[in-house]
């Protein structure tokens, strides 16, 4: 028993800290070897590049902490942002249109939660299929050509993707704001603690009186709506929304960022710092390799090998008891 306590109090770097350390090492190496890596301008470029990924990862983290996964996140954000843009183009006020998009994102998320918690379809499958469904319906009814351009003259919305004084990118500010809000929500509110409890042990959470079904719906609604914020940044940065991003591998990147920093897929582990750490690592790697003008494939291979090493190291540093490990992890 005493030994147990001792072991628990001994310092062991959390996965997030380890990833941050690794990021720092990579950044130092790039600074020394790549001209132009270490400049304010490049740092802003770097952070701008990963802001969207970071925001999406925050949303995904909420679900993953609740021991779920949301493969429909990209589809949901693409669909709701595309519909918001369509409404704006049709002459509705930006605010009304954006709120309508938000409502749609919340609805998609809530329905996901319903399918998972009430109908009890495995999360992986439910979100996969629901993503296909919303995508198909939206394209059939609203966005026939998969892409919708924001009509000219909506600079207020475009501001979300612009830079402010000193070249500070607005997406970075949004990412920071989202991170703070999600952090406060997860660590300071009852619902946040419930989400951890839900992810850690669903049966125990239910038996101790948490109503896990609405909670699941909330988690997925949060994932979709935080994703929607990322979608708005996409629209603001490119002035268009192309539904095909829902079929890209972006969702894998999001999950990777989430899990890399220590938000385990078994649920109940990790926090916002984990997400930030994972995002930064990917950002630094991608930025450095873009400066080196490596092609995407080489970038992916290098990224993959680094990740594989990281995963291996992690399981070496944090061995898990495989017999009690939850399945589908």
């Amino acid at each position: 028993m005493a030994e147990d306590v001792h072991r628990r109090t001994a310092y062991k770097p959390s996965q997030a800290m380890a990833v941050l350390g690794f990021t720092l090492v990579a950044a130092v190496v790039f600074s020394l070897t790549l001209p132009g890596f270490l400049s304010v301008g490049n740092l802003f470029a770097l952070t701008r590049g990963i802001s969207i990924l970071g925001v999406l990862a925050l949303g995904m983290a909420v679900v993953v902490i609740g021991r779920g996964i949301d493969l429909s996140q990209i589809a949901a954000l693409a669909v709701s942002a595309a519909i918001a843009v369509t409404l704006i183009n049709a002459g509705y006020s930006s605010v009304a249109a954006i709120l309508a998009g938000l409502a749609l994102a919340l609805l998609i998320g809530a329905v996901n939660g319903l399918l998972i918690a009430v109908v009890e379809i495995p999360a992986l499958f439910a979100t996969l299929a629901s993503g296909l469904f919303v995508l198909g319906v939206t394209r059939a009814l609203v966005v026939p050509h998969y892409q919708v351009f924001l009509a000219a003259g909506h600079d207020d919305l475009l501001m979300l993707g612009a830079n402010i004084a000193g070249g500070l990118p607005v997406p970075l500010l949004i990412f920071a704001a989202c991170a703070v809000v999600v952090h406060l929500f997860l660590s300071r509110t009852v619902l946040g603690h419930f989400i951890y409890a839900h992810g850690d042990n669903e049966a125990a959470a239910r038996l101790s009186g948490i109503n896990v079904r609405p909670l699941t719906m909330l988690e997925y609604a949060l994932s979709a709506s935080i994703g929607y914020v990322g979608g708005l940044i996409m629209v603001a940065s490119t002035s268009l929304m192309h539904l095909q991003i829902a079929e890209s591998t972006l969702i894998f990147d999001v999950i990777l960022v989430v899990v890399l920093g220590g938000v385990s897929l078994v649920g109940g582990r990790g926090n916002v710092l984990s997400v930030v750490a994972g995002t930064l690592l990917i950002g630094v790697l991608l930025n450095g390799m873009t400066i080196m003008n490596l092609d995407t494939q080489t970038q992916d291979i290098i990224k993959g090998v680094v990740l594989l090493i990281a995963i291996g190291l992690d399981s070496y540093v944090h061995p898990r008891e495989e017999e009690t490990a939850k399945q589908g992890d």
Partner: peptide
């Protein structure tokens, strides 16, 4: 990869 976001990121860098 035909993705406007990616094109934006590349261009920024």
């Amino acid at each position: 990869n035909w993705d406007a976001n990616k094109a934006g990121d590349i261009t920024t860098t």
